[in-house]
C-alpha cells in the first residue's frame, strides 16, 4: 500500500509544479528516480522515447509508463491520476474566475519568473542526459553537492556522430525538420541495431 501512496504523492507534486507541458515533467521524473531508486536514468530515457512514439500526450504517457515500471497496472493508474489531480483542481478554480485570473498582475509577474526557470530545469536534465549517454560519465553526487564526474574513459564516438546528424536533420534540413519525432526515433533505433550501439 505504501508504495502506491508514495507513487501518488510523487506524481501529485510533479503535476503541481511541472509547468509548460509534458517535457516539463522530465526534471521531476529525473528527481523521483534518483531519490527513490525506482528506475535508472537510462530506463527513463527509454520510457521517454516510447512515450514520444505512441499515441497520447507525452506527459501522460510518461506518467503511465513510470507508474507501470514501479508497480504494474495499478501503478500506472495511480501515477496518472496523481499527475492530473492538481491540474483538474487548479483549472476548475481558474475556470470559475477566468477573467480576473488572466488580468491579475501577480499571476502575470509570477509566470514571468516561472517560465525561464521551467526551461532551465529541462536544460539541466538535458545536460545530465548528454553527460550520461554521449560522454559515458556517471554523475556522482554526495549529500547535496556535485562531487565530481566519474568518466568511464570512453566517449561514445558513434553516439556523438549520430547526435550531430540528428541535430542537423531536425533543425536545418528543410525536408526533414518538420517531421514528427517518431521518424527520428525509428531512424536512431535502426542505426543503433546496425552499428551495435549497446556493444552487444
Amino acid at each position: 500500500m505504501t508504495i502506491y501512496l508514495r507513487l501518488f504523492w510523487e506524481f501529485f507534486k510533479t503535476g503541481l509544479f511541472a509547468i509548460g507541458g509534458g517535457m516539463a515533467t522530465l526534471p521531476f521524473l529525473h528527481d523521483i528516480g534518483e531519490t527513490t531508486g525506482w528506475y535508472t536514468q537510462a530506463q527513463l530515457m527509454n520510457m521517454l522515447a516510447v512515450s514520444e512514439s505512441t499515441p497520447g500526450p507525452i506527459g501522460i504517457n510518461m506518467a503511465t509508463y513510470v507508474g507501470f515500471t514501479v508497480a504494474g497496472v495499478p501503478g500506472a493508474v495511480i501515477a496518472t491520476v496523481g499527475e492530473v489531480t492538481p491540474s483538474i483542481v487548479i483549472i476548475l478554480i481558474i475556470a470559475a474566475l477566468l477573467k480576473s485570473f488572466r488580468e491579475n498582475r501577480y499571476v502575470d509577474a509570477g509566470f514571468y519568473g516561472l517560465r525561464p526557470a521551467s526551461t532551465g530545469l529541462i536544460g539541466a536534465s538535458c545536460v545530465t542526459v548528454i553527460l550520461e549517454v554521449l560522454l559515458c560519465t556517471q554523475v556522482v553526487t554526495t549529500g547535496s553537492l556535485l562531487n565530481g564526474l566519474s568518466w568511464a574513459g570512453a566517449v561514445s564516438v558513434q553516439g556523438l556522430i549520430l547526435a550531430a546528424v540528428l541535430l542537423v536533420l531536425t533543425n536545418w534540413v528543410k525536408p526533414t525538420k518538420g517531421l514528427h519525432p517518431i521518424f527520428f526515433i525509428l531512424f536512431s533505433a535502426v542505426v543503433g541495431v546496425v552499428f551495435h550501439f549497446a556493444g552487444v
Partner: peptide, 23 residues
Amino acid sequence: QNAFAGIQVCVCVLIFNAVLKLL
C-alpha cells in the same frame, strides 16, 4: 538493447530541441 542505445542518442537531441524552442 542496441535499438534503445541508438534511441537514447535521439532522445538527447529531442530534449535539446525542446529547450531551444522553449528558450
